[in-house]
Amino acid sequence: MWDLIKKYRVPFVTGAVVLVAFLVYGSNLKHRESANFFERGVLTVLSPLFSVGAVVSGGAETVWNDYIALVDVRRQNRELLEHLRTLNSRLVGEQEALLANERLKKLLELKEQMPAPSLAASVIGEDGAPWFKTLVIDRGGKDGLQEGMPVVTSAGVVGQVVKVAANSSRVLLLTDHASAIAAVVQRSRARGVLRGTGSRRLSLEFAIREDDVKVGDQLVTSGIGGVFPKGLPLGEITMVKKGEYGIFQTIEVRPMVSISRIEEVLVLLKQRNE
């Protein structure tokens, strides 16, 4: 027997190992959901190593994801930022065009309503001195402009042309101290002269104490004097003060036109002697 085993040692051992392996497998089929002492031992011994391995692996992944795989990201980021800038500037440009379109549409509507021929102009400069209120527009004598022509926007009266050059003109704003426009209160037809005060407010002078003027009343051009056509909006009354004495009342007016935001205007091409 021993000789037989010796003779077939290799196949016999192999068979025994395979059988043991099979038996181990077979015996664990019943308890497949619980760990036996071997599994527990292996896991206990190896788990710290697994942790180290996991840390190393995580580090390697970080290195890969955050550094090696991001070699091009800086360049890509720069390109995207550039792209974003281009898109932003395009967006701003489109927004600007949209707003200009709206303003010009209003100006065109006004132009169609005006009885006299008119000419659109862009504001190209402002007065440098704080105590004078004038604008420079890009139309001049060559375009038919003359001193004294009324200048308006869709909101109301801006002022009048005062100095005309060949290709540009100066406009005296209604807020300038030298500006005086004959005005009438739309509701009560009370008359007065609207003077600039050098600030954002105007003053309605020579309105008699007995005249019916209230806060919120609209002021329009009276047409007297022949410079401005009748009925153009001038401003809204913001303060009325009647002193105990005196013939006139003190009236403060807010101009309809936002002077600091004017970009385009309409010049009414009215001859001086018309």
Partner: peptide
């Protein structure tokens, strides 16, 4: 020399 009344205030 001018008719700009009240300009002294702004000035």
């Amino acid at each position: 020399f001018s008719a700009a009344e009240g300009i002294y205030a702004s000035l």
